[in-house]
């Protein structure tokens, strides 16, 4: 009996040590990025020899980085809007579809782009956009990012709609609300948090996506990850860390907004 207990204690310790090591592995690179952004030296090293806000100052003076930052936000918002529109209408349509034959094609079609290496997608779209004259436009990057963001919005909305009580839509029709007004007055108020979470996901995906953007962007439409990539390949200075810190903060902000949105919903349910 004692030997069994002893064995389980050892097992527990090994188990805990292993996952804590993995936790460190998962967070360490991000920690390195944030810490090195406060480095004073021009050479990237961890831990830095001395700390300063010098590179933050550089960032705010660099028109190239600020331009890329604006581009990223612009493309991110465009992607969030387009992907939300496509994902919400697609999932809603599939929910209304009674025989579901179209949905059986739609679901894999929406999912497949996620499983194709982004480089292949990138060159495919580059060739295509050259043919149709969209090469170098913001639209080309927004469309490419939407290809990746839509599946996520779509699956979030499918799960949100599956929890919606569809009898409410019947009730709205029954009380005289047409297709548009029943959606606006009855469906939308019940799924708006899901749409918000989906749109935030789409925004983050666009903000982070790099391979397709690398192929599709021109100097005037360069996004932050693309500029970071070209910068890294030239010189390893802490500027990329500064930019990365901003990106991490934006992502954290988005998580907090999403958490507040879903939790407020949860909170209001608890209070009622």
């Amino acid at each position: 009996m004692t030997s069994t207990l002893h064995r389980e204690t050892v097992e527990n310790r090994v188990f805990r040590a292993s996952y804590l090591a993995l936790l460190v592995f998962m967070l360490l690179p991000l920690f390195v990025v944030v810490v090195t952004s406060f480095s004073q030296a021009g050479r990237l090293a961890f831990p830095p020899e001395s700390y300063s806000l010098a590179w933050y100052g550089e960032f705010f003076e660099s028109t190239r980085w600020l331009r890329a930052f604006t581009n990223s936000i612009l493309i991110g918002v465009g992607t969030a809007l387009l992907a939300s529109f496509l994902g919400v209408t697609g999932a809603f349509g599939q929910e209304l579809d009674t025989d579901d034959s179209l949905g059986a094609i739609l679901q894999p079609l929406v999912l497949i782009p996620l499983l194709i290496p982004p480089v292949v997608l990138g060159i495919t779209l580059l060739m295509y956009f050259s043919e149709v004259g969209l090469r170098g436009s913001y639209a080309s990057i927004i469309l490419a990012h939407t290809l990746w963001a839509t599946p996520l919005v779509y699956f979030v909305m499918r799960s949100v709609f599956s929890r919606f009580d569809w009898q409410q839509l019947d009730a709205a029709h029954d009380l005289g609300a047409g297709p548009v007004r029943s959606f606006v007055h009855v469906v939308l108020p019940n799924v708006k948090h899901g749409i918000l979470v989906g749109a935030l996901l789409a925004f983050i995906i666009s903000l982070q996506e790099f391979v397709m953007a690398l192929f599709l962007s021109t100097p005037s439409t360069t996004t932050i990850p693309v500029l970071a990539w070209t910068q890294i390949r030239q010189a390893l200075d802490p500027m990329v860390s500064v930019v990365s810190t901003f990106l991490i903060l934006i992502s954290l902000g988005a998580i907090v907004i999403a958490a507040i949105a879903t939790n407020l919903e949860w909170l209001s349910k608890q209070l009622s």
């Binding site: 019947d170 009730a171 029709h173 047409g178 019940n190």
Partner: peptide, 20 residues
């Protein structure tokens, strides 16, 4: 005629009250 143009009115099994 679709439901929203008919002057019929239904009380549903789960009542389908709008929670919001």
């Amino acid at each position: 005629q679709p439901a929203y143009e008919r002057n019929t009115s239904t009380v549903f099994q789960d009542w389908a009250l709008f929670p919001h």
